[in-house]
Simulated scan of single mutants.
Amino acid sequence: MKPAPFDYVRCDSLEEAAEVIAQHGDAVRVLAGGQSLMPMLNMRLSRPSVLADIMQAGDARQITADKATLRIGAGVRQTALSAYPDLCKINPLLARALPWVGHTQTRARGTVCGSVAHADPSAEIPLTLAALDGTVILRRGGKRRRVTASDFFLGMMLTDKADDEIIEAVEFPILSEGTGVGFCEVGRRKGDFAIVACAALVSPDRVRLAVGGVNDTPVIRDWDAFDPAEESDALNALAWSLDAREDLHASARYRRDLVRSLGAKALQEARTCAA
Rank of each mutant, 00 (worst) to 15 (best):
M1T: 11
F226R: 09
T272F: 11
K143S: 15
S241V: 08
A97F: 06
E19G: 13
A4F: 12
F193T: 06
P99F: 07
C184W: 04
M156W: 14
N91K: 01
L158Y: 13
R140Q: 05
A65Q: 10
T69K: 08
E19W: 15
L238C: 10
G33M: 08
P173K: 03
E269S: 15
E177N: 11
L129I: 02
A97H: 04
E185Y: 14
D66Q: 03
V147G: 00
G180V: 09
D133A: 13
G141W: 09
T69D: 12
V181L: 07
A117D: 02
R253H: 11
R188D: 15
A162K: 02
H118Q: 12
L31D: 00
A239I: 03
R206A: 13
V170E: 01
E231C: 08
K143W: 12
V116M: 01
D227P: 08
P173M: 01
A27H: 04
Q23M: 13
T69R: 12
I195N: 05
D120V: 04
V207H: 09
L138G: 04
P121K: 09
E246H: 07
R221T: 09
L45P: 13
D163G: 05
T79E: 03
N236S: 15
A131M: 00
T111F: 04
E269N: 13
R255F: 01
L248M: 15
E177G: 10
A274D: 03
Q105G: 09
M40H: 13
R255W: 08
R10S: 13
H118P: 06
S49L: 15
N236W: 12
P99C: 08
E185C: 14
T217P: 02
D7F: 12
K89E: 13
L201S: 02
P48M: 08
E177D: 15
S241D: 07
K161G: 00
L70Q: 01
L37S: 01
A210N: 07
R96I: 07
G180F: 01
M40N: 11
P218K: 00
A68T: 12
A229W: 11
R29F: 10
V196Q: 08
D227L: 08
P85D: 14
H24P: 05
A197R: 03
R145I: 03
P48R: 02
Q105C: 14
D12G: 12
Q105N: 10
S150M: 14
L248W: 15
R96G: 10
E230V: 11
E269K: 07
L138C: 07
T148K: 11
F153G: 00
R44F: 07
I90G: 02
T217R: 04
C198V: 12
M40I: 09
T106L: 13
P5D: 10
T69Y: 10
R139E: 06
T128A: 04
T135D: 05
R107S: 06
S122M: 07
Q105S: 14
D216R: 05
E16L: 15
L81N: 00
A32T: 01
A194N: 03
G155T: 08
E269R: 10
R77I: 06
L93H: 00
D243N: 11
D224P: 07
D247Q: 09
G114K: 02
A197T: 06
V214C: 01
A130I: 09
R10K: 09
